[in-house]
Amino acid sequence: MDRYSRQQRFAPIGATGQQRIREKRVLVVGAGALGAANAETLVRAGVGKITIVDRDYVEWSNLQRQQLYTEEDAIKRLPKAMAAATHLRAINSDVVIEPIVADADARLLEYLVARDRPHVIIDSTDNFDVRMIINDVSQKYAVPWIYGACVGSYGLSYVIIPHETPCLRCLLEEVPLGVATCDTAGIISPVVHMVVAHQTAEALKILVNDERINRKLVSFDIWRGQYRMIDVKRIKKDGCPSCGDKRTYPALQYENETKFAVLCGRDTVQIRPAQRDGWEWTTLISFLQQQGIQVERNDYLFSFTVDWHRFVVFFDGRVFIHGTNDIQEAKRLYYQYLG
């Protein structure tokens, strides 16, 4: 029992708190920089179960800040969720680790939250579409979630407690478009850790039932030495469609269609087909090979290059087309080679 001794000696946790942590389930959405660091901290802290969802695979440009991954993961192009699970199991075999290689859409997140009733959801995503889905699922199932985001040397964190604090939609009247992302402004690892320090500290308080959760919006710039906390409780809206009296959970009204999305910082478009089953991968791969296209594969995905576009096809049906930020061009390429 030495493993958690230092954490237990910390009075607000103690043996009782440690037991509580052990019994709790956490859903981490995203396994990039924030997701890897959040998951590692919580797995080391000894949570009962952690589910980690991510749609991406490990690339060289991730290694500077995504602390769980190694060069070998990048060479093998392992899905982040799978690579994370392998490393997390090596760190703490007591914890049940469930990796899910998929796009965190409304259907999946609602399924996972309804199935597991996690005690907290940790946001480690890179876009507001997913965060609005997390926000609605959190309200619908009364599970707290912890927003975290960073770019450059700037970061923010905020805890959303259903029926108590303003939700993300109260704070943000619309989904921000064209805000700075890691591709345009870059990102340094220390700010990732500062965001994660706030997220995991609040997560631990939630898991041990400590009332001293920070309800303020925290933001900081670690390069400029700025740090501030803002009390936002006055902007909770009674008429909010996510947390108000007549809520409709707008982000959960999913459409059943093929979706195209430009990925943050990747010169890449993701295509997510509406229909996920019944793909004949072997047929498709041999069809491509007959056209003289060289196809590489591992257990989770296959990839090929046509001109300067690299296609990565996950066996759950999703496709990344690298070398474009243009959705129309991606659509054309998708239907040309995979439609």
């Binding site: 890179d126 507001f128 960073c150 805000v179 992302t181 990102i187 919006l217 933001s219 501030r228 803002i230």
Partner: peptide, 10 residues
């Protein structure tokens, strides 16, 4: 005055 703006990255 404090102005906080949201960012998406992570």
């Amino acid at each position: 005055i404090e102005i906080v703006h949201f960012v998406g990255g992570g």
